[in-house]
Amino acid sequence: MPALNRRRFLTISAAAGAVGAGAFAGRALQAAPLYRWDGVALGAGASITLAHPDAERIIGRALAEIARLEAVFSLYRKDSALTVLNANGSLANPPFELLECLALCGTIHSASGGLFDPTVQPLWRLYAESFAKGAAPLPEAVAAARALVGWGDVRIGADRIAFARPGMGLTLNGVAQGFIADRVAALLTAEGLTDVLVDTGEMRALGGHPDGGAWPVALDVEGTILPDAVSLREMALASSAPRGTTFDDAGLQGHILNPATGAPSDLPWRLVSVTAPSAALADALSSAFCLMPREAIVATLSAFPSARLVYLG
């Protein structure tokens, strides 16, 4: 994959890990110390914060789950289910997670009037490869790549996922991080945990902070940190910064592409943050909203009463 100009790796930082020892009196009563794992998932910084006497074993299980899901969704792994699907144009007996994730994509695709479209992968690749060579793609090339975009041409079935046309491709980068956060949260719930913050690039809070209260989360708006901007309790938060990652060095060609125009978003949004019961939903919505004016966002949100726009600017 071509190198991208990543101005900021993370758009959000959780204040959770920075909680001082004496900040919460309740901690003294609990046997298990607050445990925070920091690492990488799907190429982005990730962390899991929990309080449990057997934290290391539980984190180990969570990491195995992340590794398993990367083998489904990662575009950076040659053997992932998604890479195989893109390479072959079809995939027999797809993993359940892929089916479930694509079902959500379909829903958001309809709700966003087609602006959220995982089939922009050919366009995305064109931009990435062109800018890696130092130039914007030619209009003819953009038109050709745009012709390969079309959610309706993805045939989804439990026995097989297939593209109707050769050359098509899927990217789930606008939803997979959130999906993985949800799955890790589900695994930790099955382990009996109640107060956990999973951050795989998008955040999913189980319960609240072990010291009491909600998980305080800061937002990063192009380098300006807004501390404690969001309080998360039993809720997910996803943020998208259209120009957080750009194709060009000038930082103008944002990585979120409009399937209708074939160009990066021309809207002024620096950060779009959405909360929802599931991180996958919040992730997909925040990705879609990057391409929408405020009125359209508000209109779309009416179909998702449990989701809220917590930052737009």
Partner: peptide, 24 residues
């Protein structure tokens, strides 16, 4: 069980997940 296994042998409605492995 579904019915797909009659064609290609695979039970496509269940999978066992353990650690980073998915077993079908």
């Amino acid at each position: 069980r579904g019915s797909n296994y009659r064609y290609d042998g695979l039970f496509d409605r269940i999978a066992l997940v353990q650690g980073d492995k998915t077993i079908r």
